[in-house]
């Protein structure tokens, strides 16, 4: 079972990879508007990459529901 901290670390890796930006830092309270390039299109790519990393599948509703990174982690851990 992944802890929230491990989850966050892995999500940061995914973000760095997908957005091609090694300087990205995230916390649980980070929202899309805090990260340059985290637009609606890249969001889809991030979601698919996170799914792959954690070997989970999100529902369409979940994909749209997260207000911040913490909620994404909660969602992953609930799977």
């Amino acid at each position: 079972m992944t802890t929230r901290e491990e989850g966050l670390t892995q999500i940061i890796e995914v973000f760095k990879d997908v957005l091609d930006d090694q300087s990205i830092t995230l916390s649980e309270s980070t929202t899309a508007s805090d990260v340059e390039d985290w637009d609606s299109l890249n969001h889809i790519q991030l979601v698919v990459a996170v799914e792959k990393k954690f070997k989970v599948r999100f529902t369409s509703k979940e994909i749209q529901s997260w207000a911040n990174v913490g909620e994404m982690i909660t969602c992953i851990l609930s799977k």
């Binding site: 979601v47 369409s60 994909i63």
Partner: peptide, 16 residues
Amino acid sequence: FRPSVYVNSEMVLNIE
């Protein structure tokens, strides 16, 4: 084709 990608982005081609 990934339905969740289609629903959220209007893209019919899955990223893969």
